[in-house]
């Protein structure tokens, strides 16, 4: 992605450190996310608590990115590609931080769900959704490392499937809750977990857009296939609006 080294070598080092911090943050976020799915499926309360605790490490890295980018902006006054690199780091780190927060939220929901001891069949759709979003996250991090705009666009398009999975899971959970009112509480937990994963997918698409801009210098303007009105109602971030 670079056209060669800077005349001032320490500048290269600082940019490399920044990229390394982002990659480390991305790896930790992936792990947190995978463990959150594992804790849910294996009904592992201890693991869930560990995930909640480990979120601090990602927050620390997020602060490290803030500090590194502020220093680069103040001391190096980056231009062109370097400027895009620094701005991309700020944006990607905040998306990763949010994704990690959602993984923590999943773990928080997992604890009471385990205590409920009710078997919720649609729960089995969760790992499928989770795997899809984890794959997206891994791919976009690769796209970032390799400076591959096409790969970023492919990931960006893949989010549509996650949205569809979420909508179908939502409908399934509704029928469950209507059948038996006692299932409302556990089903709500599952629903929120699914919602968390769906939101993670949205943050991954933000990262895709950032990587695309970083590499090409152009904003990603292409329209993704439109959601239907009901689907939009279901997938739009209602929590955020409240």
């Amino acid at each position: 992605m670079t056209t060669g080294d800077h005349i001032v070598k320490s500048y290269d080092e600082e940019l490399k450190n920044l990229n390394d911090t982002i990659i480390e943050m991305a790896n930790l976020t992936e792990i947190q996310f995978e463990l959150a799915i594992e804790a849910l499926m294996k009904q592992d309360t201890d693991l869930a608590y560990k995930i909640i605790e480990d979120d601090d490490r990602i927050d620390d890295l997020d602060h490290a990115v803030d500090e590194q980018t502020m220093n680069l902006l103040a001391l190096r006054q980056p231009m062109a590609m370097d400027l895009r690199n620094v701005v991309a780091a700020i944006k990607i780190s905040s998306d990763l931080e949010r994704i990690a927060d959602y993984a923590t939220n999943m773990a928080r929901r997992t604890v009471p769900l385990i205590e409920e001891k009710t078997v919720i069949r649609p729960l089995h759709s969760i790992p499928r959704m989770g795997t899809a979003v984890i794959a997206m996250l891994k791919d976009v991090v690769d796209a970032y490392i390799e400076g591959d705009a096409d790969k970023a666009v492919a990931v960006w398009r893949a989010d549509k499937e996650v949205d569809e999975m979420y909508v179908s899971l939502f409908r399934e959970l509704l029928t469950y809750m209507m059948e038996d009112a006692r299932r409302i509480t556990p089903c709500t937990h599952v629903l929120f977990i699914a919602k968390n994963i769906e939101r993670m997918g949205d943050h991954v698409t933000n990262v895709c857009e950032t990587v695309y801009y970083l590499v090409t210098g152009e904003p990603l303007r292409e329209d993704r296939p439109r959601k239907t009105r009901t689907d939009r109602l279901l997938t739009d971030d209602i929590e955020a609006k409240e």
């Binding site: 056209t3 060669g4 005349i7 001032v8 062109a80």
Partner: peptide
């Protein structure tokens, strides 16, 4: 590329 190299301090 040459503009990029110059303004980002990678020139030469």
């Amino acid at each position: 590329e040459r503009t990029q190299g110059y303004i980002t301090g990678r020139y030469g």
